[in-house]
């Protein structure tokens, strides 16, 4: 049956992914059921661009215990990846690559860039654990380490095209994606996978930071 039908289905395979022009979102309406402002899009009063991931109204906490929304990163180039502190393989490599990327950036861009790690592990990666990770990896003030609710993490991952799943042993399987944001919070480049691509990433970030 499948073989017979497959060609027909090919015709419908076109997911439209393109960007489209549309009006600015209005402020989120209050939820009549729960009396809360909801939905990821359109934070009240924030005029983020239509392509800015800072439209995501997700709440995080940094490693010093302060509440953090992604919109606070606005105005600076950003290099962001999702990780978890107990990760033994891919995540340390990602952090090492972010440090290497930093070294490759032109001086004027390097000082302005923020490096962000957001944890998949909503249970174990508390602010204290992230602070410890910062110390272990000698990450200075240009690094922001975040953890969040399951909702916040899942929505950010979805927005970045990152897939993840917790395994039986508590570790996470996840895509390795390094995302570069311009000062408006728009994705300008993504490095997929673990190897290479740093020159291209550095060039993309430098161009976006201008």
């Amino acid at each position: 049956m499948i073989t017979r039908l497959a060609p027909l289905f090919l015709l419908t395979a076109s997911f439209a992914l393109g960007a489209g022009a549309a009006a600015q979102p209005t402020a989120a309406a209050a939820c009549p059921h729960c009396q809360e402002t909801t939905a990821p899009a359109a934070k009240t009063g924030a005029a983020f661009s239509k392509e800015s991931i800072y439209q995501l109204d997700a709440r995080f906490t940094d490693d010093s215990g302060h509440a953090f929304t992604l919109g606070e990163l606005r105005g600076r180039p950003v290099v962001l990846t999702m990780f978890f502190a107990s990760c033994g393989y891919a995540c340390p490599l990602q952090v090492t690559d972010m440090q290497a990327l930093r070294a490759q950036l032109p001086a004027g861009v390097r000082e302005r860039t923020t490096f962000v790690l957001v944890s998949f592990d909503v249970v174990h990666d508390t602010s204290a654990v992230l602070a410890q990770y910062r110390a272990q990896r000698s990450l200075d003030g240009q690094w922001t380490l975040l953890h969040g609710t399951d909702d916040a993490v899942r929505e950010l991952a979805a927005l970045l095209g990152v897939k993840y799943k917790q395994e039986a042993d508590g570790m996470f399987s996840h895509s390795n994606v390094l995302t570069l944001l311009n000062p408006q919070g728009e994705i300008v480049h993504q490095r997929i996978g673990l190897k290479g691509g740093l020159d291209e990433a550095a060039a993309a970030l430098a161009a976006a930071a201008r």
């Binding site: 997911f15 992914l17 549309a22 979102p25 209005t26 909801t38 899009a41 439209q55």
Partner: peptide
């Protein structure tokens, strides 16, 4: 109707594609 930013012409492409 209650949350107009989810209307077709208003929504961000980040959150819903063009179809």
């Amino acid at each position: 109707t209650a949350q107009p930013h989810w209307q077709r012409s208003m929504v961000s492409r980040l959150f819903a594609d063009s179809s």
